[in-house]
Computed example of a mutant assay.
Amino acid sequence: MRSIGEMARDSGLGVSALRFYDRAGVLVPARVDPVSGYRWYAPGQLGEARLLARLRRAGMPLADVRLVLAGWSGADTDLVRGLLEAHLRRLERDLADARGAFSAVREMLDQRESPMTVPARTDAVRLSVPAGGLRAALDAVRFAVGRDPELPMLTGVLFDAEGGEGGEGGGLRVVATDRYRMAVARTAAAGHEGPRAQVLVPAPLVDAMRALLSGDETVHLGVEGDRVTLWAGDSQAAGERLAHDFPDYRRLVRLPAGRRAEVDVAAFREALADGPVRAGEAGEEAGGAQELSVLHVTDDGAVTVCGEGDEEGDVVAVDRGFLLDALAAAGRDRLLLEFGAHTAPLAVRRTDDEDTFSLLMPVRLDG
């Protein structure tokens, strides 16, 4: 017999996914301890679990997965082959539709200027920034930097310098996103009198800059051509900017106002850590199978973590690890969670700073 942890390790399905498939009646353990509720799986169930993992990875609907597993256990090869071929035909139709849609989008893209933000590479920029402000801003966004080598434009932090008259009144925004989450922060800056200037700084250089920001003095940020430099006293961190376009974050963060609920961060983190989780699916960078927290705002403004079957009204499901990261990066004892529609991002905001926030994309609940 395999424990649920051993089955998760050997099958490629997460523990939360195995619990979900048990509750859904798709892969029921051979024995459940009546006292502890611990699940145990028979040796023959490992093959079914691996098959289940592959079918879900291929995007097969749960209703069809049930039938495939039933046919598999009953040696009904005709049923299994028929379901696999039907799903493959669906995938091929969907791929053909997607190719057609992408072809149309490319034609539209050719007819207009790219909406991506492309910083001018010839203008020199020099900013003076409080070390403490830049340190706090980088700490608030670093967790959201992407790591997918297929999307190099997301593997850095965008530095967006706002111009100010006479070198005063401007600011510096820093932005990071990996598609599943986005973080934005702002700090005061002086010295840049021209139009908005943007530079995409690679993550290793961002970390080198952050290491120099230990004090509260004023530091200086310079961009000349493709080279980015931060001077902090007698030390400096310098390197090449990323030669990629960063998405227009200003468009992405324009969201309809949602319902806000204030949370005590320590208590909410404890509720997330100890509360129920659900299984969900996301892209490879987000880890494939995910542990999700399903959140609901009660009529009196409290945020609850829902178990399966406990949902009342509108709920939003987000990656629990991503949410814990966002709470830690916000750096406050109390925060505002802003809920829109269940398909809209969940916003994590400071109570005292509207310019620093993060957005977490909702995740489809499995099944």
Rank of each mutant, 00 (worst) to 15 (best):
L51K: 01
R181K: 10
R57G: 12
R350K: 10
D352V: 09
G100Y: 03
L109V: 14
D274Y: 08
V219H: 01
M116G: 15
D94T: 11
A17C: 07
V265K: 06
D97V: 10
S293F: 00
E6A: 14
L365F: 07
S114C: 09
L242D: 05
W72H: 15
A120F: 08
A261F: 05
A237T: 01
G156H: 03
R350W: 08
V28I: 12
V265P: 08
Y21Q: 02
D207K: 06
D148N: 15
E270K: 10
G156T: 09
D300E: 12
A185Y: 01
L213W: 01
L295V: 00
A317D: 04
G170F: 11
S11T: 06
E193N: 08
L91N: 10
V28F: 15
A328C: 05
E285T: 07
G313A: 11
G163M: 06
G167Y: 14
V118W: 11
R56T: 07
G164A: 09
A42N: 05
D178K: 06
T343G: 11
R9F: 01
E168N: 08
P256K: 07
E338L: 05
A347M: 10
R23H: 05
G37M: 10
A232E: 03
V184S: 03
G309N: 09
E291G: 11
S293T: 14
F357W: 06
A124F: 11
S214P: 01
R349D: 03
L84D: 08
L84W: 11
A317T: 10
P152E: 03
R364L: 14
G12H: 08
A326K: 02
T356S: 13
P119C: 08
A203L: 15
S114A: 12
G14I: 09
E92C: 06
D355R: 13
V253D: 01
V175F: 04
V294Q: 10
G82E: 10
R147G: 11
L95Y: 09
T351Y: 02
D207N: 06
G100Q: 11
D264Q: 13
G156S: 10
A267R: 15
G340D: 12
G59H: 12
V26T: 13
V219R: 01
G222A: 14
A208K: 12
G288Y: 12
S11P: 00
G367I: 02
M108K: 14
G14T: 15
L205N: 00
A140N: 07
T177M: 07
P34G: 07
V223L: 09
A104S: 13
I4C: 03
G14N: 06
E85I: 09
R57Q: 10
A237R: 03
R334A: 13
E270Q: 14
P256S: 04
D139Y: 01
E224P: 00
A232Q: 01
S214W: 03
L365P: 00
